[in-house]
Amino acid sequence: MNTRVTYRVRLTPECLEMDGKRVAEAVAGESFLTQLYRMNKMDYPKFFKMDVLCKVGFLASEILLQAEGAERFVPRSDRAVILFNRNSSLHADRTFQQTIANPEDFYPSPSVFVYTLPNIVTGEIAIRNKYHGESSFILLPEKSQEAMNRAIARAFLDPETKSVLTGWVEAVSETEFEATMELVVSS
């Protein structure tokens, strides 16, 4: 099947790029992720409850999907969400571990625990955009475009899938993250 990339976004701690053009840069003060949330006037308070991996993936998808305009938020089953990274939800895992490390202060945090799975990111994106197609978060030993392309190609084997929101979403700390996300459509 022939496919093409319609939109592409790249998010790092330093800047945001849309289709290869730098559209926003981090400034001193709040975290860049919060700055982007406010700049894009998102009315989605749940954002603040997310762990950093989820924030990175969610923001990248929000900014990328704005380009779809009026088509957004129409329930659909023909779009898959397939994301990749190497470190899974390691940052949330470590944060949760801190809540149970001290026997004298043993209070496991439910709200941290829910983010100790990377596929929460794909779930949040699917819920937000009313997607009912496939969603997967695949862990790779290293960033490999070839491996990602194979997974995307497999998704298109489902005759119902007409587009795939996909990319590399990695966050190992509040200041070390990267999302490279694109919308691939069948043509």
Partner: peptide
């Protein structure tokens, strides 16, 4: 529902 679990932890802690 996750918030209520967090509130339960808050009261205990």
């Amino acid at each position: 529902s996750i918030d209520v679990l967090e509130l339960i932890v808050l009261l205990e802690r």
